[in-house]
């Protein structure tokens, strides 16, 4: 972590007295994909009063002896230009897709591939949440994976996880993958 940061501030980073391992996770995806709902679901908070995010939300979740700092940044088109500013020192990317919004599969695929090409996300593992599986019209995760050409990703670990942020189903499975993945990386 933090190797990318140079100079004095990288020294400051080492000053933090925490023994706990901190992990920076960025949560992205189109508007209305369910990023904030997922974030709140991760933090075991109420998911019924969520409005479209105009800025960003941060939650710290303790899991597997690690402190996961999850940054959820608004997905509206005009905010997407700001995503880049949040990618530095990221340990893991979570990308959320509305599995029932077939009309925007192409758009979400484009945004994802742009992120994958970002220098700051080079080699950063990506977890894709195929969200809203509670809806009858949701596409299965396997279909979405195919549409996104995930199998062509050779430079990083990736995983697609079907979930419903509203019911919480599948969310923990995704988190387990994240923790295992990061624990493995740190060992190496």
């Amino acid at each position: 972590m933090g190797e990318a940061q140079k100079g004095l501030l990288s020294v400051v980073e080492k000053l933090k007295g925490t023994t706990e391992q901190e992990v920076r996770i960025v949560l992205l995806g189109l508007d209305n994909a369910g990023k904030t709902t997922l974030l709140k679901s991760l933090a075991s908070e109420d998911v019924n009063t969520i409005t479209p995010t105009q800025g960003f939300n941060i939650k710290s979740v303790a899991s597997h002896g690690m402190k996961l700092n999850v940054w959820d940044i608004g997905g509206q088109r005009k905010i997407r230009a700001f995503w880049k500013k949040y990618l530095e020192n990221t340990d893991l990317l979570i990308y959320v897709i509305d599995s029932a919004d077939k009309k925007r599969f192409e758009e979400t695929g484009l945004e994802l591939s742009e992120l994958i090409d970002e220098e700051n996300l080079k080699g950063v593992p990506v977890l894709i949440f195929a969200n809203k599986q509670d809806l009858a019209t949701a596409s299965p995760a396997s279909e979405i994976a195919e549409g996104l050409n995930l199998h062509t990703y050779r430079d990083r670990e990736w995983q697609i996880q079907a979930c419903s942020a509203v019911s919480g189903e599948g969310v923990q499975d995704g988190m387990n993958w994240i923790c295992n993945n990061i624990a493995n990386r740190k060992k190496k």
């Binding site: 100079g7 004095l8 501030l9 400051v12 995010t53 105009q54 800025g55 960003f56 939300n57 941060i58 608004g74 905010i79 700001f82 500013k85 949040y86």
Partner: peptide, 27 residues
């Protein structure tokens, strides 16, 4: 408010620059 504004990030960046400059000069 619970939600952060995008402008916070910009200001945080400016703050980092300021602190870095001050500390570096002093050191």
């Amino acid at each position: 408010e619970e939600e952060n504004k995008l402008s916070y990030t910009e200001i945080h960046q400016q703050y980092k620059n300021l602190v870095e400059k001050l500390l570096e000069n002093y050191m």
